[in-house]
Amino acid sequence: MALIEQLNQDMKQAMKHKEKDRLAVIRMVKASLQNESIKLGNKNLSEDEELTVLSRELKQRKDSLQEFKSAGRDDLVDKLETEINFIQGYMPQQLTEVELEQVIKSAIKEVNASSKQDMGKVMSTVMPKVKGKADGARINQLVQKHLS
């Protein structure tokens, strides 16, 4: 089922159950998807494009979460954590640490990387394979660890 259809069904359910927070998040995600569709000029987004939008929304909230935590805004921290949980429900299953390390090791072998200077090559090989399934910062840390 396409993501937009899933969002529409979940939106109806959230309305019926009067889940205001969930409804707000679904509407924001739908709006982001529609904006991306307009920006790209095609009516239906591919699964990869939808994943890009979801990842962007998730990253924005995670960045804001760190800012609010450091500012001591517990009221906004709770709200953002709830939003992050809702968005993660639409993301693909995240890779485990072991699976991620296997992908990184195979990418290092594939591009014959030997030092941190080859990090760009490794990252450009790894990222398309794990798009939406792992956090970019975590991937970066693991690649650095394996190249040092």
Rank of each mutant, 00 (worst) to 15 (best):
M1F: 06
A2S: 15
A2H: 12
L3Y: 00
L3W: 00
I4V: 13
E5T: 06
E5I: 01
Q6D: 07
Q6I: 00
L7H: 00
N8S: 15
Q9C: 08
M11R: 03
M11N: 09
M11K: 02
K12M: 02
A14L: 00
M15T: 02
M15C: 05
K16P: 07
K16W: 01
H17S: 15
K18H: 12
K20Y: 06
D21I: 01
R22Y: 02
R22S: 04
L23G: 10
A24G: 12
I26S: 08
I26K: 02
I26F: 01
M28N: 13
M28A: 13
M28K: 10
M28R: 11
V29I: 10
K30E: 05
K30N: 11
K30R: 10
N35E: 15
N35D: 15
E36G: 13
S37K: 02
I38C: 09
I38T: 14
K43H: 11
L45H: 01
L45T: 03
L45P: 01
L45D: 05
S46V: 07
E47L: 10
E47Q: 13
E47T: 14
D48T: 15
D48P: 11
L51I: 09
L51V: 11
V53L: 07
L54A: 14
L54P: 05
R56G: 15
L58C: 07
L58P: 06
Q60N: 15
R61V: 07
R61M: 15
K62E: 10
S64K: 13
L65H: 05
L65D: 06
L65C: 08
L65E: 05
E67Y: 08
R73L: 13
R73Y: 11
D75R: 07
D75M: 09
V77M: 04
D78E: 14
D78L: 15
D78F: 12
D78K: 15
K79Q: 14
K79H: 11
T82S: 14
I84H: 04
I84M: 04
F86R: 07
F86S: 10
I87V: 09
G89W: 02
Y90D: 10
Y90F: 14
P92K: 02
Q93T: 10
Q93C: 07
Q93N: 10
L95Y: 00
E97S: 10
V103S: 03
V103M: 01
K105D: 11
K105F: 06
K105R: 10
S106P: 04
A107R: 04
I108P: 08
K109D: 13
K109I: 09
V111K: 02
A113V: 07
A113M: 06
S114P: 01
S114M: 09
S114G: 09
K116I: 13
Q117Y: 13
Q117M: 14
Q117L: 14
D118P: 03
M119Q: 12
G120W: 05
K121Q: 11
V122N: 03
V122R: 03
M123F: 08
S124P: 05
V126P: 08
V126D: 05
M127D: 11
M127W: 03
P128D: 03
V130G: 06
K131R: 12
I139W: 00
L142C: 00
L142S: 03
L142E: 02
L142M: 08
Q144P: 00
K145F: 06
H146A: 09
H146T: 06
